[in-house]
């Protein structure tokens, strides 16, 4: 069986591409960091890959608005290829800044014009710490065999999930497109500091209607091994990987 090829999309200011590449390689894929200009110049073709990842970072320095410039660039320069990628039911993952790109280009939640945004944190600060997440019943195939409550780090200033109106929010909730929500260690939905940014309904990540396009503010690539946890000694000796690593494994497994 041919290995699953993963394209990690780079632009100026991307800074989580190495970790993401490492995580996907560790999960059994062949990951490659590709600059957007290589796709524009047709040196690399999206159709040769099964998974597209827009990693975390500060694309174009977050100028104008986080993810806004890259979202414009995707719409203006490589939209045909992205559309074909989506039509072929391939997987797109946006982490942190990548999530901002996916919502600002309208790819999430319904691949229409922009319907949700990720606003400045209510605290007005960059929130960089561990959070608890409660995995919801969702349509995505990548969150199976993962405990209901997991921990991941967040690191963002613009992560407050804000839909255009109640109707959009209701549709996302009804379609089971919410992947996980910020919560306390027992899974109760609470406000700040558990919800680091003031997200509506504590939403931390969503997926498309078919579950194959994923956007999330927390960074699974920053907690692949148990040693990344501040209290890793609590884990058993035989456990090495964290539950969030399972997301990468499930994505690779989906194509094999």
């Amino acid at each position: 069986m041919a290995k699953v090829r993963v394209l990690i999309l780079r632009v100026g200011g991307t800074n989580c591409d190495f970790e993401t590449e490492w995580a996907f390689n560790l999960a059994g894929g062949i990951a490659e960091r590709v600059h957007i200009n290589q796709i524009i110049k047709k040196e690399k073709k999206l159709k040769d890959y099964q998974i597209l990842v827009i990693p975390g970072g500060f694309s174009y320095g977050d100028d104008i608005g986080a993810g806004k410039v890259l979202a414009n660039e995707i719409r203006l320069k490589i939209w045909e290829e992205i559309e074909r990628f989506i039509e072929e039911k391939k997987v797109i993952l946006g982490i942190c800044n990548g999530f901002q790109v996916l919502v600002k280009s309208g790819i999430l939640p319904f691949n229409t014009k922009q319907l949700v945004t990720l606003e400045w944190n209510d605290s007005g600060r960059f929130e960089d710490r561990w959070v608890y997440l409660k995995i919801e019943e969702n349509v995505s195939p990548f969150f199976k065999d993962i405990p209901e409550i997991i921990r991941m780090p967040v690191a963002h200033a613009e992560g407050k999930f804000l839909p255009k109106n109640e109707k959009v929010l209701h549709k996302i909730e009804k379609n089971k497109q919410v992947i996980f929500r910020y919560c306390d260690k027992d899974g109760n939905l609470k406000g700040y500091p558990y919800n680091p940014n003031g997200s509506i309904n504590n939403i931390a990540g969503i997926c498309s209607e078919d579950g194959l396009i994923i956007g999330m503010m927390p960074h699974p690539e920053r907690c692949v091994l148990k040693y990344y946890y501040p209290d890793f000694l609590k884990f058993g000796n035989n456990e090495i990987f964290t539950p969030s690593f399972k997301i990468f494994q499930n994505m690779i497994k989906y194509f094999t």
């Binding site: 806004k68 414009n72 600002k104 014009k113 922009q114 945004t117 804000l162």
Partner: peptide
């Protein structure tokens, strides 16, 4: 409208 503004917020 098309390039600078986040039309939601």
């Amino acid at each position: 409208r098309d390039l600078l503004v986040d039309n939601i917020s």
